[in-house]
Amino acid sequence: MAETAVKEKESVFQFGKKERKLLTDPLNDNNPITVQVLGICSALAVTSLVYPSLVMAIAVIFVTAFSSLFTSLLRNYIPKSVRMIVQLVIIASLVTVVELTLKYLNYPVYKQLSVYIGLIITNCIVMGRLEAFSMANKPWRSFLDGVGNGLGYGVILVAVGVVRELFGKGSLFAGSPIELKIIGPTADYLVNTTDSMLFGWYANNNLMVLPASAMFIIGIMIWIQRSYNTKLVDVS
């Protein structure tokens, strides 16, 4: 009797090949942004700097992970006809938690992200994963799936942020404690040299600050990814 109880407990939190796949699949083959085209809405406008993108990515990972967990825990008690409303209430409550926490911890970033924190609610990844995965799977696996999809989203977000900030402003992590000025005339690259010999000629590219550039960068990312991962190519 005691033995079976222990066995069951182990099987709840096991981390095998399948579980690892839940985490890594959304990073490439099933990336929420470049493959599933979900959650672009609240993503692109925050990526002009790396630091807000990073905060946004963490917020989304938190929301996808815990909304998946709670939905999965409640999945047998949610009537099918009102499931959308129940899911939205779960997501909205978690997003409210995130919003208030961020407001308390880091007000400048909260101001920068403005409405986009609230828009995590309508981020299609969250709803999409709840509908497609959590409603039919056990809590632990749903949690991992949520983390994986949040990560897949976050990776793209931060990558776009890096490109846009580096070429648009010449810096990285502006606004955070570890702000680095990397390229451009006043770059202090690692050591505080006022004139970087390497990239002193670089003039900031203002196109990268504009929202349109995020579209180009993601378009090019999709291009690169699909060149290597040919099974993703759109045949229609």
């Binding site: 349109a212 579209m215 999709i222 699909r226």
Partner: peptide, 17 residues
Amino acid sequence: PALRGLGMAFILTGLMG
């Protein structure tokens, strides 16, 4: 081929922006 569909839609949206 790798740019067909989605990739092109992104770039077009950027240009329209």
